[in-house]
Every structure is written in C-alpha cells, then in structure tokens.
Write a protein that binds this DNA or RNA. Structure first.
Length: 451
DNA sequence: CATCCACAGGAACTTGGGGGCA
DNA sequence: TGCCCCCAAGTTCCTGTGGATG
C-alpha cells in the first residue's frame, strides 16, 4: 500500500490496472467521447497538467530570492554537514511548496547528493498523528517487507524502529513537513520534539526538519525547546500582488495555449480576482484553467474576459458543493438546520435555535442527536471551512452565545445537501435562486449577503 | 456593582473500530 | 483468543465570559 500523504521519497507501489477493453459495452452509447477526442484542441498546445496545482514549472517568477535562501540553508548537506532546521511561512498559494520542490530537484541532481541525502515530503493534512508520521518515515527506509512498521505497535516501539531504520543509512534525511501547523494543531508538539532531538540518538544518520506553514503564529503555543530548534532558520513568503500574478499566468499561458488565443484582459482579470484573495497563485491558475475549459465547451476560438467571469462563478460554487459533500453526517444536518434558520430569520441565527432545529431534523431522520458540546465543535469546523461566520455575542441576561451567518448561497447549498443520500427526505420544491451569480461576482461584498 | 443567563470552550474520559502479538 | 496498541468521534464535567439588569 502506498504511504498516505507521501509526496517525495520512494515511489509508491501502484497496483497494475487492467487495460480497458477496446469494445464498448452494449449499455454504453458508443462514441460519446469520439467528438471530444477526434478534433485537436484549438486552444491548448501543451499538456493541461501545466495548469494543475501539482505542476511545478521550471521557472518560479518572483521567488528567486526565496529559492536562493532555501538552497543556502540546505547546501551544507552536500558537504556532509548537518544543515539547520528551517521553517517556511506564507499564505496559501505563495509558492512555498513549489520552491521547496524545485530546490529538492536541484539538490538531488548534484553528484555530491548521491547516497548522502534523502528527501522526504509529507503533507500533514494527511499524515497528522504521531504514530502515522513516525510509521511513514520509518517505512520509507524499510528495504524489505519484514522491516516495515505495522499498525498496532506501541508508539515507543514505532519510534525506536523508525530510529533504527534511519540510522541504517548514512547521510542526511531532509524531512519536509508541509502544513506542519495542522500536525501541531491536531496532535500537539510531542512528535516534533521527538524529531527535533533525534540526532542525539543517531550514530550514522542525521535528520533536518523543514516545516511549511500557512499560519504565521503556529509556533506560539509550542514548547520552548521545540520552538528554538525549529526556528534555527526561517523564511517568509510574501503574497503575490496583481502584476506578479500576471507574470506567473503569462508564463503558464505561453506554455499551455496556442498563440493568440488568450484575449487581452484575461490574464489581468484572473490576476485581479486572485490578488483580492490573499494573492493566491493557485487560485489564479485554476481560474485560467476553468476559463479555458469554459471557452472550449462553448467551442470558442479564443478565451475572453467573459469566460473568466463565468469560470469564477463556477469555481466558487464547485468549491462549496465539494466541501458540503465531504462533511460528516451530523455536520450536514447541522448545516441544514443553520440554513433553514437563516432563511427563516433572514439574518443571523443563535446557537440555541440552531441546536433546536438540528435536534428536530435528527429526529425526522431517525438519528439520535449529538450532544450540544459536539455540535459546538461542528460549528467551529463549519466556520473554519468558510461556510458560516459565527460571532460570539453577549446578550446580557440573554446569555453569551454565537450569532451565525451563512457565507454561501443558501438555496444552492441546501440543494447540495438534499442531494445527499441521508438528507434527501428533506428535499422540497424550491425556486431557482437568482442571487447566485450576482452575489458571487461581487468581490467587494462585505459580510453575509445570502439568504 | 453583584447577579444572572446561555452558552463557549478546555480537558479528561468513554466507546468502538482496526490492527498486531504471543 | 485475549490482550495490547492507536485513533476518531462523541460525552461529561467544569470553569470562564461579558453585557443587561435590578
């Protein structure tokens, strides 16, 4: 089985996929993809992968300085010395992961790195418990099946086994922990303490930690020893501004689109939308991709600024629907109760009302309702996902509570919930919301405006 | 200015599931 | 097979909060 969240290191073993039968099944309308595949794309020249999040371009505009900084920190590993631990901060889509990935490639390309440097990258959103982290690190070094660390051992045993496996190889292990703040938030700093002091227990191997975080303040709650070890070096990635985002988009566009298909104003509009949202380059690139796909579906010969506007509306709604679908069952019921209350009151709903609504819905669905404490946690989770805004308000003798506002289009979100197997019995006929496109396309919108 | 209300939210605990080991 | 481990989800218990009220 492939290690979850492992981005670098040994390639995961993938099961062989049987080749598809060339004969279409009788129930499949033959040739439904023929039209889409036969004609070459009029817009795309290069692989569409160039516009995916996972693609790391050969050039990272406006990140030359950061690349140099990361390289300088890690360079001692090429001389057989132990580099300092490194923390990289910056908001989403500021190029942190891409820069580390590029430095990694350059580093491993050097002849001095051969047999001397191992580079493993984890995303702590997937590997977020001490056990799974130590297990995955150890298993990355296991050369035979019997060396692998299974699930079910005590944490001490996993730790000792991982240490032995790392020490089985000479050289430096550069351990990149992407979204390290999520690991700390979920499991505390114990495992970081273990990793940050592991070098004192190793004879041959050496470990260097490179933490990547979106949260500039995540080290505030750390144990002082862990903080000082992690903070040996730190690099801040500032958000991109609109002209910088335009440069990034032009680079990608040149690579992926045919000449002259991108109309003036397209790049500028994608960059402007993304610049408004924390200078997120990923978002800018996704918008460009969606705009191109929209143009392609319309069989347009060129991508226009209008396609960007359509793409932006689609992007926002897709994100919401996908997010809603991935919620746990009780969280979906809670969100439905919030939406109902919000629609009824045409404004903020209080925790007590929401809990009452949630309890009624649960009973309707023949599910035992959760305790208010658990619901309180779900409210926090929904807020962190950006679906609602929950402000703590004190109402005097009315007590202290949270006033909850909905941050997504009510009708569309309810419909997404009603599509769910669990909640479909709640579905009712409703009018199509006219608010969606106008609300989503107003970047200057302040505060809750749906409902 | 003490009291009150209706929670907020931290911490410890319980439960149940997936897995290893002797 | 029984006992151990980890982990996620949920519960219980508790203290804290802050503005209206008397």
């Amino acid at each position: 089985m492939a290690d979850p969240g492992l981005v670098g290191g040994s390639p995961p073993v993938t099961p062989s996929i049987p080749s598809p039968s060339p004969v279409p099944s009788p129930s499949t309308p033959a040739g439904i993809f023929d039209a889409a595949l036969s004609a070459p794309s009029e817009l795309f020249r290069g692989s569409r992968e160039i516009l995916q999040d996972s693609y790391v371009p050969s050039r990272l505009p406006h990140r030359e300085h950061q690349i140099r900084q990361v390289a300088e920190v890690l360079a001692p590993s090429l001389r057989g010395e132990v580099p300092s631990n490194l923390l990289i901060y910056g908001k989403i889509g500021t190029g942190k992961t891409a820069v580390v990935s590029q430095v990694r490639s350059e580093l491993l390309r050097r002849p001095e790195a051969r047999g001397r440097i191992n580079f493993i990258t984890f995303n702590c959103a997937n590997v977020d418990t001490p056990y799974s982290l130590l297990q995955t690190i150890g298993n990355n070094f296991a050369t035979k099946e019997s060396d692998r660390i299974p699930t079910g051992w005590s944490l001490d045993r996993v730790q000792a086994s991982m240490r032995d496996l790392i020490d089985g190889r000479t050289g430096t292990l550069i351990l990149v922990l992407d979204e390290i703040d999520r690991l700390v938030k979920k499991s505390g700093d114990g495992v970081l303490y273990t990793l940050s002091q592991i070098n004192s227990e190793l004879e041959k191997g050496r470990v260097v930690l490179v933490g990547i975080s979106n949260d500039l303040k995540f080290t505030e709650g750390l144990d002082a020893r862990v903080r000082s070890r992690l903070h040996e070096e730190k690099i801040l990635f500032p958000p991109y501004d609109a002209p910088q985002l335009q440069d990034i988009l032009r680079d990608r566009a040149k690579e992926v689109f045919r000449d002259g298909v991108v109309e003036p104003g397209v790049i500028e509009r994608c960059a402007a939308y993304a610049a408004l949202e924390n200078g997120d380059a990923r978002r800018a690139i996704s918008l460009l991709r969606l705009a191109a796909e929209t143009a392609e579906r319309e069989r347009a010969k060129r991508i226009t600024p209008d396609h960007v506007v359509k793409a932006k509306n689609r992007y926002d709604l897709d994100v919401v629907v996908e997010c809603v679908r991935s919620l746990p069952p009780h969280c979906k019921i809670l969100l439905y109760a919030i939406l109902q209350g919000y629609e009824r009151r045409r404004g903020g709903v209080l925790t007590g009302e929401v809990y009452e609504g949630y309890t009624k819905l649960s009973q309707k669905l023949a599910l035992p309702p959760l305790h208010p404490r658990s619901i309180s946690n779900y409210v926090i989770e929904l807020e962190s996902l950006g679906l609602i805004q929950a402000n703590v308000v004190s109402r005097g003798r009315g007590g202290r509570t949270r006033e909850i506002f909905v941050e997504v289009p009510v009708s569309e979100t309810m419909r997404a919930l009603e599509d769910d197997e669990l909640l479909k019995v709640l579905a009712r006929p409703r009018l199509l919301s006219q608010t969606l496109l106008t609300n989503f396309d107003n970047p200057n919108r302040t505060g809750p405006s749906y409902g």
